[in-house]
Design a binder for these strands. Structure first.
Lengths: 220, 220, 220, 220
DNA sequence: CATGAATGAGTTTTCATTCAT
DNA sequence: CATGAATGAAAACTCATTCAT
C-alpha cells in the first residue's frame, strides 16, 4: 500500500493522496490500463470515495493533468529571473524544466505521453500548458530580435515555428535524459541551449554559446 | 464502411486493407481504445479473418508499426542525395520527413504517439527506427565537424545529445505542422533547418541559413 | 432461476450458492460446455461477481472439485467405525460411499467424469482424493492379511492392484446405481461387498459373504 | 503432419485416415478442446473435405466411438474360446480386453473418458458397447451358477450388479495399467481375475484363483 | 474433387460505476 | 462519511461451419 490508512483526514489532504496515486498509476500503466481499483488501493482509500471526490476516471485524469501542468509551469516560471539577458533567461528556464521533469518522471509521463495520446478532452488540457511555455519562449525570441535592432520581419508564424521547435526539442530531450543514465538535468540544458542558441553551423565553426560558470546551487 | 466490401480477395491484398484500417483506427483512437471490432468493420471484413491473418491485437499493432516505420525511413533515405554537402543533405532529409508525415498523419500518430506509450514490445520497435534517424543525423554532424577542421572534441555524448535534440524537434514540429493549417512541409523544414543550422543567436543577428532557391518539384 | 434472487448477502453465503450452481452445471453439461453465463444465472448473480469471488473458470472448477472431494471423503470417513472387524469396516465404507454419491449425483459426476477428463490441474486434484480411498482400502486388505496369519507375500503392487480394482468397481457401480431405478445405495453396497469379499467363485458355490442383519438406521 | 499428403485416394481410405486423426485428437485433447482444424491438419486433408465425408463434429465423434467400440468388442470376442470352462473364458476375455486397451490408449480414452462425459448422443453409443460386455460377463456368471447346480436364485438384478462391478473394475484397471509403468496387460488381467473369482476373503485365506500356466503367445 | 477465403455466434474475462448499509 | 456488495456493457479471442473457385 502506498499511504498509511489513517482515518478521517481533511478532504483536501485525501484528494492529494488520490492524485498522487493516480499520477503514479497513470504514468506507469497508461491511462487506459490503469484501473480505478489499483488507484484506490494505492491511495489507501475505498473506490467509492475516489468517485465521491473525483467523479469519474476522466475527471480524475484531468485533475492529474492540471495539477502536474501547473506544477511544471510554476517550476519554470519561478526558475527564471526576468531581469537577466534573454539568453540567460532561456538557460534558466531550460534548467528548471529539465530539473522538474527529472524529479517528477510520472508526472512528466502523464503530461508528455499519456495526455496527448488519449483524445481531445485531455490533449487540450496539455495544449494549454504547452502554449504557456511556447509563449514564454516566443516572447524571449521577440525581445531578443528587438534588442538586436531587427524589426519583427521575423514573421509571426516564423517565430511560432521556432518556439515550437525549441519546446519540442526540450520535451524530447527530457525523455532522453530520463532514460539515459549519467545525463544530468544540467547537461541536458547545456546541450539544448548550445544547440538552440548557437546552432549547428556555429558549433561546427567552434563558436558555441557558453553556459555561465557562476557557482550555482547543485541540481540535486 | 471504409472499403467497398468486395468478396474473396487474395490474402496479401486483404492484409494490406486490414493494416490500412488498423493504422487509421490506432492513430485516431489510440491503441487501447481501438477495438478489433472497429478495425474489422473499417477493413470491411469479419473479426475472425483479422485474427486469422494477424493473430492478435498486439501482433496487428506491431505489424502496423513495422510497416509505417519502414515507409518513413525509406521515404527519408530516398529523399536525400548523399553526394551533396551536409547541410543540403540535412535539408533534404527534413523535407522528406515532413512531407511523409504530412501525407500519413495516422501512421505518424501510430509511431510518434501510440507506439511509444504502450510498453516495451512496441516502444522497442519504434526505438529502432528512431535510432536510424538519429544515426543519420549524428553522422551528418560528425562529417560537418570534420570538414570544419575540428577534431572530434565534440564528445560522443555531446553529439548524441545534439542529434537527439534535432530529431526531437523534428518530431514535435511534424505534429505542429499537421495541426496548424497553412503550414506546409516545406515551411516546417525551412524553419527547423534555420533553427538547427544557424541557431537562434545567428538568426537574431540577421544571419540565417538560406534554403536553396533552385526550382524544386512542388511539395505535392 | 435456481436460487431466489435475494440481494446483498455476505460473501461466504454467495460463494456457496455459486459453488452449488457450478457443481450442478459442470456435472450436467460438462466442464467445457458449461458457460460462466449459465452458472451465474443459476446462482442468481451477475457474471462479474462470480469472477470477483472465484477468479476464473479454472479456479471455480477447482473449488468445486475440492469441495466435493472433501465432502465425499468425509462422508466415507465418518461412516466407518474403526473398531469393527475389517470386513465390517469395508461394508460401512461402501455404504457411506454409495449413499453419498446417490445423494450428490452432480458432485459425483464432477469428480468421476469431469475432473478426470480435463487435464492435469484437475485430474491431480481428484487423484489426491482417490488415493485417500485407495489407501483406506489398501490398509484394510493389509490388516486382513495380517489377521489371517499371512505374511505380506501379497506383494505391494499386488495389493495396490486389488485396491484399485475395488475402488474402480465401486466408482462404476455408483454410476450404475444412480442410473438404474430401484437400486438403493444399500443394495449396491451389498452387491459389491459380496463380489469383493467372497469372489465369484465362492458365490457360485453358495458361500457368499453375509451382510450384517442388525437393525440399522434407514438409508436416507 | 500425420499422414503423407497423397492425392486421390479412395474415399474409404481417406475416411479411415480422418478417423485415425480424430481418435488421436479427441483422445488427447478431449472432445470440446479438439478443433476440427487440428484434426484436418493431422489427417493431411482440408477442412471442407472432413465435412464432406463426416458431416459435422458430432457425427465425426460418433463415428470414432463406433469404430473404437467395434474394435474393442471384436478383440474381446475373438480372444475367447467358448469351448473352455467359464473361468478360463473370463480369463481370456480379460486378457484380450487389457491387451487391446493397452495397444489403443487413444481409442480407449475416447470410449472411457470422452464419450461418457459429453451427453446423451455419445453416452448412449458407448452404453451399447458396454452392454455387450456386461451381457457376456452376465452369461458367464449364469452358466457358472448352473454348472454349480445352483438355481438362478441369484436374482436377475443381483447378477446384473455383479457383472457391472466386474466390468467397472476392468475399465478402471485399464486406465490404471496404462498409467502405471511396469504393469503389463497380463498382470492386470491376473490381478482382476484373482480378485473377481476368488474374492478378497479367499485371497486372505491363501486360496487364490490360479491363472493357467500353459505356454501362451506373448502378450503384445 | 479439393481448397483458400470468409463468418455468425459464442466464449472467458475486465472495468468503470453505483447502491444499501 | 465509508464500504462491501453488486452489475451493465464491452473487450479480445475461438470455433464449427460454408461458399466460390
Amino acid at each position: 500500500m502506498g499511504a498509511v490508512k489513517t482515518k478521517r483526514m481533511p478532504r483536501a489532504v485525501r484528494e492529494q493522496q488520490m492524485l498522487d496515486a493516480a499520477v503514479r498509476t497513470f504514468g506507469q500503466r497508461g491511462y487506459m490500463a490503469a484501473s480505478m481499483d489499483e488507484i484506490a488501493e494505492l491511495a489507501g482509500v475505498s473506490k467509492p470515495l475516489v468517485y465521491l471526490y473525483l467523479n469519474s476516471k476522466e475527471d480524475l485524469f484531468t485533475a492529474c493533468i492540471r495539477r502536474e501542468a501547473k506544477a511544471l509551469t510554476e517550476a519554470v516560471r519561478s526558475g527564471v529571473r526576468r531581469e537577466l539577458p534573454v539568453d540567460r533567461q532561456l538557460w534558466e528556464g531550460l534548467r528548471a524544466f529539465f530539473t522538474h521533469t527529472a524529479q517528477n518522471p510520472d508526472g512528466w509521463a502523464v503530461l508528455h505521453l499519456q495526455a496527448r495520446t488519449h483524445g481531445e478532452p485531455f490533449a487540450a488540457e496539455v495544449a494549454a500548458m504547452r502554449e504557456e511555455l511556447v509563449a514564454f519562449v516566443t516572447q524571449l525570441i521577440v525581445v531578443a530580435a528587438r534588442e538586436a535592432h531587427r524589426d519583427p520581419d521575423l514573421a509571426e508564424s516564423e517565430v511560432a515555428g521556432l518556439a515550437e521547435a525549441l519546446v519540442g526539442a526540450a520535451e524530447s530531450l527530457a525523455a532522453w535524459a530520463n532514460a539515459t543514465p549519467g545525463v544530468t538535468a544540467r547537461q541536458a540544458a547545456a546541450t539544448l541551449m548550445n544547440f538552440a542558441w548557437a546552432g549547428l553551423g556555429n558549433l561546427m565553426e567552434g563558436r558555441p554559446w557558453s553556459p555561465p560558470q557562476e557557482a550555482e546551487q547543485p541540481v540535486l
